[in-house]
Design a protein around this nucleic acid. Structure first.
Length: 497
DNA sequence: TATGAGGGCGCC
DNA sequence: AAACGGCGCCCTCATA
């Protein structure tokens, strides 16, 4: 079978109990592998671009357009030839295509939520919000739309005349009212703390608690859609609803996660790859210190702290470790002194010193990053270990900021992209092993959240299945360092141990 | 009424 | 806010 949106077709087949085709070729996914930064991966768009056809212009609106068989054939010819040319066949046929049906399964299964519970949280939030709105209007001396940054800015800085010291402008030139700003002016007026809490609670209610109730089906299950062509690095994205950004820290977040539950007599189990991106970075760069740290299962942030502060491991304080953690994360993203100073609270000069010290201690990481940047500049693309490719023609741009942006993307993609491959490979392997064991109904893969898999598992086999899943995830890929998976189990998503 | 930009913020 | 990578969704507001 060849076509577009095969995942949707497969979900239809699953619904009516039909068998999926043994061989299939999703054109959207194929063109995404060839260039993950296309504007879209529709038949129309790709026909126009690669076959020099005009759009299948049935006005806009109504139903999705159905490409003609001939166009499909032609697009297939182009895609399969290019996949071979760019050595992407293995990734396509062994990872992305098998993954497509795994995703169809996961989406069809969905995850159960306690709608009653959500409703209660909704009520609670409503009550809190009503009180906050009252307090805010009282402090402001008038009513206004708190959700409007424009109106809020007027109230704060014109009506209440809160000092603008340390307050930044937005890109559009207006005064910012973001959290950063609110925190800096918090001591200057009583209204600010109400607004901070209002922002937090309104976000939770409008983005999560409300929509999640609406999206539950008759079995109280929520079905996200994974977008296989949704990122430039190889990750998946999740939409309608996005189940990859459910709140995780804090009291309200816990309440929301508590509402994600297993079916009766099942348990939820999460399996998350420990420090997967740093392990990948250690492996790719071959940095001896970092590799040794992971080989000895050391606390990587503590090890980093000991190095950048030049103290023995046991002399590392929590503050030092926190700073090192920020540094480790930042390095993966190509963070500069400015961003690090912002994230750490250090001065830019101090921040710069720490970054230099970091790269002095982990020289191979610096070298690896320089190589990747060079590759991007000279060839116009970067690749990860599996040949996953991202075109970055801007790396050679004469505009420094544009080139720098591309360079940051260049050093991040091979790391984020390999981590993405690893979990994808694990998912495919898991799915086939679960089928082999005839565990389809006892072990259900529900969510994939970048470095984490969430399962719903029959309580009777939880131990066995947990060990089994962990094993497969840890052995899905061979790096220069061990891959470690943390397992947590519980009666809901908010209380896993 | 529909759309898109802007501001903002949730996650890994 | 971003000289910190990758996402999706909410609301407002101007414009079509």
């Amino acid at each position: 079978m060849t076509g577009f949106n095969l995942k949707e077709k497969f979900k239809e087949l699953l619904k009516i109990g039909k068998k999926l085709p043994a061989e299939y070729f999703d054109l959207g996914v194929a063109f995404w592998l060839l260039n993950p930064d296309e504007e879209e991966y529709s038949a129309d768009f790709l026909s126009k671009k690669y076959l020099h056809k005009e759009c299948n212009s049935s006005a806009k609106g109504s139903t999705e357009t159905h490409p003609k068989p001939l166009e499909l054939k032609q697009l297939y010819e182009v895609a399969s030839k290019k996949l071979k040319e760019y050595k992407l066949e293995k990734l396509f046929y062994d990872v992305e295509m098998p993954l497509l049906s795994v995703l169809a399964d996961m989406e069809s299964t969905g995850i159960k939520v306690n709608v009653k519970n959500l409703k209660e949280i909704d009520k609670e939030l409503e009550k809190k919000l009503t009180g906050l709105v009252k307090s805010i209007y009282k402090e402001a001396g008038e009513t206004f739309n708190i959700n409007s940054p424009k109106q809020l800015g007027k109230i704060l800085f014109e009506k209440l005349k809160i000092s603008l010291g340390g307050v930044k402008k937005t890109r559009g030139g207006s005064v910012s009212t973001n959290i950063e700003t609110l925190l800096t002016i918090q001591g200057r007026h009583a209204i600010v703390k109400y607004i901070l809490e209002y922002r937090e609670l309104f976000k939770l209610q409008s983005t999560y608690v409300g929509p999640l109730q609406e999206l539950a089906d008759k079995d109280k299950r929520i079905h996200t859609t994974y977008i296989q062509t949704g990122t430039s690095t190889g990750r998946l994205s999740s939409q309608n609803p996005n189940l990859q950004n459910i709140p995780s820290g804090g009291e309200w977040a816990r309440k929301i996660r508590n509402a994600f539950i297993p079916e009766k007599s099942y348990l939820l189990a999460s399996f998350d790859y420990s420090q997967i991106e740093l392990r990948v970075l250690a492996s790719l760069s071959g940095d001896p210190k970092m590799i040794e740290a992971f080989n000895n299962d050391l606390d990587i942030h503590r090890l980093t702290a000991a190095n950048v502060f030049n103290v023995p491991l046991e002399k590392v304080t929590p503050d030092m470790r926190q700073l090192a953690k920020t540094l480790n994360f930042g390095v993966v993203y190509g963070m500069g002194a400015r961003a690090f100073s912002k994230a750490s609270g250090l001065s830019i000069v101090e921040a710069q010193r720490f970054i230099e010290e970091y790269f002095n201690d982990f020289k191979k990481i610096k070298e690896w990053q320089e190589e990747i940047k060079m590759q991007a500049r000279t060839s116009g693309y970067v690749m990860n270990l599996n040949g996953r490719r991202r075109w970055l023609l801007q790396a050679a741009s004469m505009f420094r900021s544009e080139a720098a942006e591309a360079e940051r993307a260049a050093i991040n993609m091979p790391v984020q992209g390999l981590a993405a491959d690893i979990i994808k490979i694990a998912m495919v392997k898991l799915s086939s092993e679960i089928k082999k064991l005839k565990w389809e109904n006892k072990v259900r893969m529900l969510l994939t959240i970048h470095d984490e898999l969430l399962f719903e598992i029959d309580g009777h086999i939880i131990k066995e299945a947990g060990a089994f899943i962990r094993k497969i995830m840890e052995s899905a890929y061979e790096l220069e360092v061990p891959i470690k998976v943390n397992v947590k189990i519980g009666k809901n998503w908010g209380e896993l141990e």
